[in-house]
Structure formats: C-alpha cells, structure tokens
Amino acid sequence: MYYGGYKPFVGAGQPIKRWANAELLLGVPKSRAGAFGQGLLNGHVPAQHGPADGDGTDGAGRTERKPIIPFTVEDITARVCEEMLAELRDKPAPSDRVELLSVDRRRFSKAVRTAEADDPVAVLLDTPDPDGPDHTGGHWEEDYDARREYLCVRIGAWKQELVTSVFIGFDIKGSTLHTEFYTYVLSPLPKSFHLADRLPATIGGKLMWRIAWDVTLSAPGELLRLIANPLRERLPSRFGTDTVGKLVSQPADTSEFRLGRYALASVDCGALTSVRELAPNRDFHHFFQESDTIKYIQIIERHLLQIVGDFLRDHDVDTREHEANQTNILQQNFGANSTNNFGGNQSVGNTKTTQTFGNNSGVTREARQP
C-alpha cells in the first residue's frame, strides 16, 4: 500500500495501544538444569541423565548453549499468520470462533511523484511496488523510500461498525528478535447515517415539494460554503509536512505565462486517510463496544505471544526472557484495563504500552517500573 503523510496504516482508524519488544536469541543451555527448565516450558519433563551431563559451563564459567536452528523473519511471520487463523477461526467450535476475522500480509511504502527531466509531463513514482517481490532479505529498510511488511489482523464486529485492526511486525538485528504491536480501531458511524435506511423507496409529488422548499432555504448557506471551503484549503498550514522530496532538474518552461516557476518538483501522492476514517464518531455508542475492542486486542495479543514462544522453542531458543516479557505485557493489560478510565501509558522493561480508550480518552495514567 502506498501512503502519504506520517502514518502508514491508512484506513485503520484511531490508535489504541502499542508496544515493542526486543529479545536476545540465545540457544537453550546444555546443562541439566537448563534442559529441565526448557522442558517445563515445552509442557513436558525431560528424562534425567547421570553426572556425565556436567554443569553446562565451559572452562571460563560461561553457560554452554545449543546452537539455534536458523530462521528468518519470513519464517516467523508465516507461522504467526498460519496459526493465528487456525487458532481463532478454523479450529474452535462454531460458537467459539472469532467471526469476520482476516489475517493479511501488507507492505507499506511512501509514495512520492517526481518530474522527469526529459519529459515535462512524465510522472515517476519514486517508490518500489509494495506488492512486488521483496528484495530486502527479510529485514526492514531504513531510508525514506523504505517499505516494511506487517501482519494485519482485522476483526469486524457489531455488523462491521466496529473494526479492530492489529499490525504485527518482526525484524532480526544483532541476534535480537524485535517485535512491534500496533492496534487501531474504527469506531461506529454517527447514528444519523442510519437515516438513509429509512428514506422512502420512491419520491412522490409531495416529497418533491418538500425537497424544493428545503433546497431554497439552504441555498445561501451552501453558496457561502462553496466560496469559503476552497479558500480555506489554500491557506498555508501551520504544521510542517513530512513529504519526502527528490530534487530533479526541471524541463524547459515554454508556457506562455511561465507557469513552470510555480511547479513543484515532487508531490506526496500517497493516501492520507480513507473515506471510512472521515465518518466515525469519536465516542462509542455503547459500553459493550468499548469492552469488545479491549477483548479482541487482548485475544490477539495473547495468541501472538503464545505462537512466538512456541516458534522460538521449536528453534532451540532459550525462551526464559520471552516468558518474562510475556508476563510483563499481560500484567500491563490487567493493570490498565482494571481501572475505571480504560486509559494509561505504561512502560515496563523493554515494552511500552500506550492505551487510549473510549469516551474517557482524555484521562491518562502513568506507571513506571525500574
């Protein structure tokens, strides 16, 4: 997907919660104690061996570890995508399934049009095709033309009026697995929009007279808006733009009024918002809509942590750090959502959680631990 402006997740709505986590990729300890602890995490108790196993340390006192079975970002992304669908939609009984669930892999790239030097009317899209082949080797690019892939887990509830989207990204750098977790919600449409469902099926003579009378009364105000809106759009904004520009040589200006003096060298042509994002209410219509948003975010988060933990164990990675981080993240959920204001900013360890829920989004709470 090509996007413009700052946020890549165009169309997802308002941000609700986010956290990031970094885990060192260390092999399972070879010692008997390490193997026993790893076995418990895998759900079984390993067979005990004799003293020949040793204490699992080398001559310098360092813990001896098994080599990690190599894996890539593509491997862990595919595993999460496959098991998320299976655990939430395919395996459960029909009454327990998460309805209207989708899990897609999406690439996001900044879109900038630049003028070609040889052709005054040519337009070049200065970014790679997000849906084309990925040549990044499983790593995220780090430049202005970068594109990055995220898993998008989306759930439509309340007859698709409440849409929760979770974006999950992975990267591996410096023997460290970095995980990003972003959640957005499209809140329900204004109730007045549903009046369209109650309009008459046919327009009769009496209704035509009413429409004509209403149009006549509203004509002066509409005329004023037609004049004022274009002027307001052309006024300079007090906020800066983050458009990525690429300076190019301009073609010869042969226009009668030398309009080339005012032509832009580059234009950010990516999407800034979606039609659906322009319409929703800022507040939920019902308390249960707010609680369902929290519910689905926590369900996806819990399954993600479990799937990643199983994946790491399958590749002989020591998951003690993952288990500790998982506990921190789940405890943050419990602490934030057990309050009356459904809001808060928390930072525990190497995870950061930002939550703003519902009609009380202006109320925040901060809690920090060393």
Rank of each mutant, 00 (worst) to 15 (best):
V248M: 08
Q355N: 12
V248C: 06
G27T: 05
G204R: 03
A157M: 07
S249D: 12
T57C: 05
G240E: 10
H315A: 05
R234F: 09
F181K: 04
L124I: 12
A367P: 00
D314L: 10
T57M: 08
S165V: 07
R113N: 13
L88R: 02
G56C: 09
G50V: 09
T243I: 06
H178S: 15
Y2W: 10
S266Y: 15
M208Y: 04
R261C: 10
T179Y: 02
N229K: 12
R368F: 09
L224T: 00
F108M: 07
R105E: 10
R97A: 08
A35V: 08
F167W: 14
E366R: 12
A20N: 11
E87M: 01
I68D: 01
V80F: 02
R282H: 09
K7W: 06
H285A: 08
F311R: 06
E82M: 09
L88A: 13
L101W: 12
P70K: 09
R368L: 09
G11K: 06
L85Q: 11
P8A: 15
A115W: 07
A35R: 10
P130I: 02
Q326P: 00
D119F: 00
V185A: 11
D53G: 02
N333A: 14
L24Q: 13
E116G: 11
L100Q: 07
Y6L: 12
A212D: 09
G54F: 04
F36G: 01
F193I: 00
V28G: 04
N328W: 14
Q332C: 08
L278V: 10
I227A: 14
S102V: 01
K295S: 07
V248R: 11
C269V: 11
N328C: 03
G205K: 07
A33P: 00
F71K: 09
P51S: 01
S109E: 05
G137K: 03
H285C: 01
E149W: 01
L224D: 06
Q48S: 14
S109R: 14
V163D: 04
P128M: 04
L101N: 07
T353N: 12
F288V: 13
R365S: 08
E222M: 03
T351W: 09
R147Q: 13
L88W: 04
G43P: 14
G61V: 07
K110N: 00
P236I: 04
G11N: 06
T351R: 03
Y182Q: 10
